[in-house]
Design a protein around this nucleic acid. Structure first.
Lengths: 216, 216
DNA sequence: GTCTATACCTAGATAGAC
DNA sequence: GTCTATCTAGGTATAGAC
C-alpha cells in the first residue's frame, strides 16, 4: 500500500517535467502555431486542414492533438496571436500622446503598411472564410480596432480638430474602408506603388474623419 | 428500322416540351432559388446544405439535382440574382442625372436602407463565409459597386464639387465602410434608430468623398 | 512522444423504385 | 419527375504500435 501510495503521489502531484522537457514541449507547440499561421496566410482557413498544417510542421496529423484538443482550438490560437500583435502595434501608435490627427494619420499608415507587407495574413485576419470559432474571434478583433480608432476620433473632437460626429461609426468606417482597399486581391488600379496607395489611403481616411482639406 | 429512326428523331431533335411543361419546370426552379435565398439569408452559406434547402422548398434532396448540376451552381445562381437586384437599384440612383453630391447621398441611403431591411441577405452578399465559387461572385459584386461609386466621385471632381482624389480608392472605402457599419451584428451602439444611423452614415460618406462640411 | 492506420462523421452526389 | 436509399470523398479525431 505504501508503495502504491507513493506511486500515485509521484505521478499525479509531485512529478514535474524537467525544465528541458518543458522547453521542448513549448518549442514544439510554438513551431506548430507558427507553421499553421504560415499555412493559413498562404491558403486560407478553409484549405488549412489538419493534414496540411501537420505536413508544414513536419509532424504527423495525429501529433497535432498532442498540443491542441481540436482543430478549432489551434485555429483560434493562430488567430489570437496574429491579431493580438496587430492590435498591439496599432494601439501603441494611436494611443500615443500628441495631436489626434497626426496619430490617426500614422495609425492608418502603420495598419496599411503591415497589411501590405503580409497580405495573406491580413486577408486571413480581416476577411477570409473561416469556421465559426474563428469568426467570433474576428468580430472581437474588429471591435478592438474600432475602439482604438474611436478613441482617437473622440480625442480629436474634444480638441476641436475634428467636427462633431459619431466616433463609433467613423471608426467602423475606417476599419471597413482600409480593409476593403487593402484586401482587394487585384491590388488597386490607378495607384501602382505602395507609397502612392498609402498617400491616397491616408488622405481618404482623414477626409472621412472630417479633417479640413489641406492646401493643395 | 424506320420506327426506331423516328423514335430517335422525335426524342432528340423535333420533340419540344409543351409550354405548360416549360412553365412548370421554370416555376419549380424559381421556387427552389427563392427558397434557397431565404435559407441563405437566415442561416448563411455554410449552413445552407442541400438538405436544408430542399426541405425549405418542400422537395427531396436528390430532386435539387434536377434543376442544378451541383450545389455550387445553385449557390452562384442565388448570389447572382440577389446581387444583381442590388446593383441595379443602386445603379439607377447613382447614375441618375443631377448633382453628384445629391446622387451620392441618396445612393448611400438606398444601399443602407435596403441592407437594413434585409440584414440576413445583406450579410450573405457582403460578408458571410462562403464557398470559393460564391467568393468569386462576391468579388465581382463589390467591383460593380465600386465602379458605380467611382463614377459618381469622378463626376463630382469634374464638376468641381469634390476635391481631387483617387475615385477608385474612395469608392472602395465607401463600399467597405458602409458594409462594416451595416454588417456588425450588434447594431451600432450610440445610434439607436435606423434614421439616426442613416444620417450619421451619410454624413460620414460625404466627408469621405470630401464634401465640405455643411453649416452646423 | 511520435507515427501509422483507421474509425467515424458530415455532406454532396447518384441510382433505381414508384 | 420525384423520392428513398446508398455511395463516396474529404477531413477530424482516436487507438495502438514502436
Amino acid at each position: 500500500m505504501a508503495g502504491n501510495s507513493e506511486w500515485w503521489f509521484t505521478s499525479f502531484v509531485a512529478y514535474r517535467k524537467t525544465p528541458a522537457e518543458l522547453r521542448r514541449l513549448e518549442a514544439a507547440r510554438e513551431h506548430l502555431v507558427a507553421c499553421a499561421t504560415s499555412v493559413v496566410a498562404e491558403v486560407g482557413w478553409s484549405q488549412a486542414s489538419v493534414t496540411a498544417v501537420a505536413d508544414a510542421a513536419g509532424i504527423a496529423a495525429g501529433s497535432v492533438y498532442q498540443h491542441f484538443p481540436s482543430k478549432a482550438a489551434l485555429a483560434v490560437e493562430v488567430f489570437r496571436r496574429a491579431a493580438g500583435r496587430e492590435v498591439e502595434v496599432l494601439g501603441e501608435v494611436l494611443a500615443a500622446p500628441g495631436d489626434p490627427v497626426e496619430r490617426l494619420s500614422r495609425g492608418i499608415q502603420v495598419f496599411a503598411r503591415r497589411a501590405l507587407e503580409n497580405r495573406g495574413l491580413a486577408y486571413a485576419l480581416l476577411a477570409a472564410p473561416a469556421e465559426p470559432a474563428v469568426g467570433a474571434e474576428r468580430l472581437d478583433f474588429r471591435r478592438r480596432y474600432r475602439a482604438l480608432f474611436a478613441a482617437v476620433v473622440r480625442d480629436g473632437i474634444a480638441d476641436g480638430v475634428l467636427p462633431e460626429q459619431d466616433g463609433e461609426i467613423t471608426a467602423a468606417a475606417l476599419t471597413g474602408a482600409i480593409g476593403e482597399v487593402l484586401v482587394d486581391p487585384l491590388g488597386t488600379p490607378g495607384t501602382t506603388t505602395t507609397e502612392a496607395l498609402l498617400t491616397e489611403l491616408t488622405a481618404m481616411a482623414l477626409r472621412c474623419a472630417g479633417v479640413p482639406a489641406a492646401a493643395p
